[in-house]
């Protein structure tokens, strides 16, 4: 029994490599989760898919870029965590305003119209943001400034984790906890939950639905903006169409977790991030092109719609007859 035992998988699947991929997936997944939260919240209150959400993510990254250019000298004087925080918060505020404006101009006039019309409008808004961004910012890739210092965290055995990755994960987790607090403990959060359960009843109970909807768009857009800046910190090259794929994947994450369900969106984001990273990391072993990573989310989407359309944590809805 001793000697050269043939272990077919030991060579292809060393544990440390697997853990490394898992970690990488976790960092990416936490960003998907941030974007997915916006999809799920808007779906919760308005029952429609805000197609333009991925483009608010893109807007967040560009806002970060331009803020950094604008505040350049000031930035240099601040310690980097403060600089990061300033850019993050300002971009979140600006994008929240943009989200509220989009809802007010494009979606509010369609409040009582068929859902299909709102969906088409959302596609229109998405394309409008992308092509206007292309006109304004240019079609080429732009480098995103290095705010977080480069370098690795030591003492993790064979694993490589950069400071940026840690910051991304910590920020995402903090934002999700903050969101949970807002939704569960504040008055507006409670109104949001009431509205998503029953719009008519919540209006009768004295909730101003329009205010709550604006608030939801603001909140979702702020999270998307944060996601955009974190994503650009991880992959520091941004362009007007950068939001399309992450946006779609985050939407799949929201469906996977159960659309309308906030913890579900976070869970879905992590699952998509990890699966995608694993597929890319093991593409050689699996014998598939690594480019397939971008198809993974859609395969998951079709599978979830086939087997559990209400999502992992969602409840099935029945139409009233």
């Amino acid at each position: 029994m001793q000697g050269q035992r043939y272990e077919p998988f030991a060579h292809h699947f060393p544990l440390s490599q697997f853990l490394q991929q898992l970690l990488n997936g976790l960092f990416l997944g936490s960003i998907y989760a941030l974007i997915a939260l916006g999809y799920t919240m808007v779906y919760g209150v308005l029952r429609f898919i805000n197609f333009a959400h991925g483009d608010v993510f893109m807007l967040g990254a560009f806002t970060g870029l331009y803020l950094h250019k604008l505040l350049g000298p000031m930035m240099a004087m601040m310690p980097w965590p403060v600089a990061m925080l300033v850019i993050l918060l300002l971009a979140m505020i600006i994008c929240a305003a943009a989200g509220i404006l989009i809802e007010f101009l494009a979606y509010r006039p369609l409040r009582d119209k068929p859902r299909l019309n709102v969906l088409i409008t959302a596609i229109g808004v998405s394309l409008l943001l992308e092509y206007t961004a292309q006109l304004v910012f240019g079609a080429t890739q732009q480098p995103f400034p290095v705010i977080i210092p480069k370098g690795n965290i030591g003492g993790l055995g064979g694993l490589t984790v950069t400071i940026t990755q840690v910051i991304v994960l910590v920020t995402a987790v903090v934002l999700m906890i903050a969101l949970r607090f807002i939704v569960m403990k504040t008055k507006l959060g409670m109104a949001m939950r009431a509205l998503s359960l029953n719009p008519t009843a919540s209006a009768l109970m004295g909730v101003n639905n329009s205010v709550v909807i604006s608030f939801t768009f603001g909140l979702g857009s702020a999270l998307a903006a944060a996601g955009g800046i974190l994503y650009a910190s991880l992959y520091p090259s941004i362009e007007p169409f950068m939001g399309v794929l992450p946006g779609l994947k985050a939407f799949v994450a929201a469906v996977l977790g159960g659309i309308g369900n906030i913890p579900g969106a976070a869970l879905g984001g992590l699952i998509i991030g990890v699966t995608e990273t694993l597929v890319a990391g093991y593409s050689d072993t699996l014998g598939i092109p690594s480019g397939y990573r971008d198809g993974v989310a859609f395969v998951i989407l079709i599978l979830i719609l086939l087997f559990k359309p209400s999502g992992l944590l969602g409840k099935a809805e029945r139409e009233k007859v």
């Binding site: 469906v255 198809g295 859609f298």
Partner: peptide
């Protein structure tokens, strides 16, 4: 499923 899901699935199929 409802219409908006079809939109996403077909978009996803387009990407795949």
């Amino acid at each position: 499923l409802r219409g908006d899901y079809l939109a996403i699935v077909t978009l996803g199929f387009n990407e795949i």
